[in-house]
Design a protein around this nucleic acid. Structure first.
Lengths: 260, 260
DNA sequence: CTCACCCAAAGAACGCTGTTCATCAAGATA
DNA sequence: TATCTTGATGAACAGCGTTCTTTGGGTGAG
C-alpha cells in the first residue's frame, strides 16, 4: 500500500507474510446493503429449514453471508426480529367491510386465511402464540374483526371476547397441528428416509392401534371416538371447532333463532 | 495425603498450598438423596422465582445445592423435566362421573380448575401449551372430558373436537393473561420499586388512554369497546368465552332447544 | 479389619446461544 | 487532501444443554 504513489497498473501478488486479505471480493458482489426486510426474509428461510429451535441470530447472519453483530445494527434483539416476522405475516391481509348478512362466512374466511397464514411457514404458530396482536400495524385487523361482530348484532361484551376467542382457536389449533407433524417427523422408524414426509396415514394407523390397545373398561369413550378422531382430516376438524364457536356466538344474536 | 501410613489421630490443618477441600461437610447434611420428585419441586421453585426463561438446569441444580450433571442421573433432558412438571400439575385432579343433567356445570368446573392450575405457577401456561395431553398419565382426563360430552348427548364428531377446543381455550386464555402480566411487570415506569406488583388498575388506565387516543374514524369499534374490554375482570372475561363455547356445544344437542 | 466394589455426585469440557464492544476499510464531505 | 460517517468485522462475555471422566464415601465379602 505504501508505494501506491508509483501508480503501477499491475498490483503485486500478496506477500506471503501478510495475513491473507479477507477476500472481500468473494462476498463483494455486495448483493444489497442489508436491511430489516432482508434480515426478516433470511430469518424465514432459516425458520423453514431448521425450525424455530434452530433459528439463531448466527444462522440468520450466515444465511446472509454476514457476521452476527451486523444484524444488530438493524434489529435490536432476537425478540425484535421475531416480532418483525410476526407482523410480516399479516402483509397484504385486509379485513373486509363488515356485512351483517354474511358475518359467519366472513369469520370463516378470516379463520381459514389465518390458518393458511400460520401454515405458510414452519413453527410460525409458536411465534404467533407468543404475541398479542396489539401493535400499531395489527390494530386494523382487530378493528376489522370487532366490526364484523358488532355490526352483526352481538352484544358488546360478547363481541369484545369473540375476537380473542377465535384468534386463540386458530393459533392453538395450528400449534397442535404442528406438534403432531413434528412428532411424526421425529419418529425413528424409517431411518433417514425422512424426506420431510410426515406420512400422515401411517401416523393415523399407529394412533388407532394405540387407542385400540387401551383397556376397554377404563377408556370406553376414547376407544369409541378413535375412528372419528383419526379419520377426520385436519381441515374438517378445524371447521368443526370453528363452527362450534360460530354457533355459540350466534346464540347471542337478539333476533333470529340460532339454528344452523 | 502421602503420610497417611503414620496413622496419627489428629489430622493436621490443611496445608496452605493444597486447594481448600471442597468443604463437603458444609453441604454434608445431605438433606435427602435427590430424586425425580425433588428435582421437579426445585424446578417449580426456580420457575416461580425466575420465570420460564430463567429456568435452566444449572439454576435447578443450584437450588438443590448440587451440580448440573447430577440431575442427568434422574432426568434425561430438560424437555423430560418440563414434561414431568406438566404432568405433575394434574396431581390430585380427578374427573367427575359424567352427569348428563349437569354437563355444563361439570365443564365449567373443569375449566375453572384448569385455569386455576395454570395460574398456580408462573409461566405454566407456556409449558402447557407446548404439550399434548396424550401421555399415559393424562389419558384418564381426556377420557373424562369425552365422557361428559358424549353422555350429554353430543354427536361423536363434536364431542371429539370439544375436548381439544376447551383445552386450547383454557391454555390460550391463561397464556395471554400471563403475557399481560409480564408486560405490566416489565414497565420501566417506577424504577425498581417493582415489588412484582403488576398494578392491574394502572395498566387498565393506560390501555384505556391508548384506545382513546386512536383516530375515531379508523377505529370506531375498538374505541367503543375499550370500556368493556378494560372494565371486565379476567375472571369475567374467562367466563364469557367459556360460555360462548358451551352454547355452541349445546346447539348440537338433539333434543332441547339451545337457549341459555 | 481390610479390601474391593459400586454408585451418586463432582468437575471439566464441548459447542452452542444472545449480545456488546472496539476496530477498521471504504465512501462522502469539506 | 484530510476529516468524518457508515456499515460491517472479529473478538469477547456470560450463560445455556449435554456428556464424559473422575472421585470419594458407604457397603458387603473375605
Amino acid at each position: 500500500m505504501s508505494d501506491a504513489a508509483a501508480g503501477n497498473p499491475a498490483p503485486p501478488p500478496p506477500s506471503p507474510w501478510e495475513r491473507e486479505r479477507p477476500a472481500r471480493p468473494q462476498t463483494a458482489p455486495q448483493r444489497t446493503p442489508l436491511s430489516r426486510e432482508r434480515i426478516v426474509e433470511a430469518a424465514f428461510t432459516v425458520l423453514d429449514r431448521q425450525g424455530l429451535d434452530g433459528l439463531s441470530m448466527r444462522q440468520v447472519a450466515a444465511e446472509l453471508g454476514v457476521t452476527v453483530s451486523a444484524l444488530y445494527a438493524y434489529v435490536s434483539s432476537k425478540d425484535d426480529l421475531l416480532e418483525l416476522m410476526y407482523t410480516r405475516l399479516f402483509d397484504g391481509f385486509t379485513m373486509p367491510a363488515p356485512d351483517p348478512e354474511r358475518w359467519r362466512e366472513q369469520i370463516r374466511d378470516y379463520a381459514h386465511a389465518g390458518r393458511k397464514r400460520l401454515l405458510s411457514h414452519r413453527d410460525v404458530a409458536r411465534i404467533s402464540m407468543a404475541h398479542v396482536p396489539f401493535t400499531a400495524e395489527l390494530l386494523p385487523h382487530v378493528e376489522g374483526l370487532l366490526a364484523i361482530f358488532r355490526t352483526a348484532g352481538l352484544p358488546d361484551r360478547i363481541a369484545a371476547e369473540a375476537g380473542d376467542l377465535i384468534s386463540t382457536y386458530i393459533d392453538g389449533f395450528v400449534l397442535e397441528e404442528g406438534m403432531w407433524q413434528d412428532r411424526a417427523a421425529a419418529r425413528p422408524d424409517d431411518g433417514d428416509s425422512s424426506l420431510a414426509r410426515p406420512d400422515w396415514r401411517e401416523m393415523a394407523g399407529e394412533m388407532q392401534n394405540y387407542f385400540a390397545s387401551l383397556p376397554p373398561a377404563d377408556f370406553p369413550h376414547l376407544r369409541a371416538l378413535a375412528d372419528v378422531m383419526v379419520s377426520d382430516s385436519s381441515d374438517e376438524r378445524f371447521d368443526i371447532g370453528l363452527e362450534i364457536i360460530l354457533r355459540g356466538l350466534a346464540s347471542y344474536l337478539p333476533d333470529k333463532a340460532p339454528d344452523a
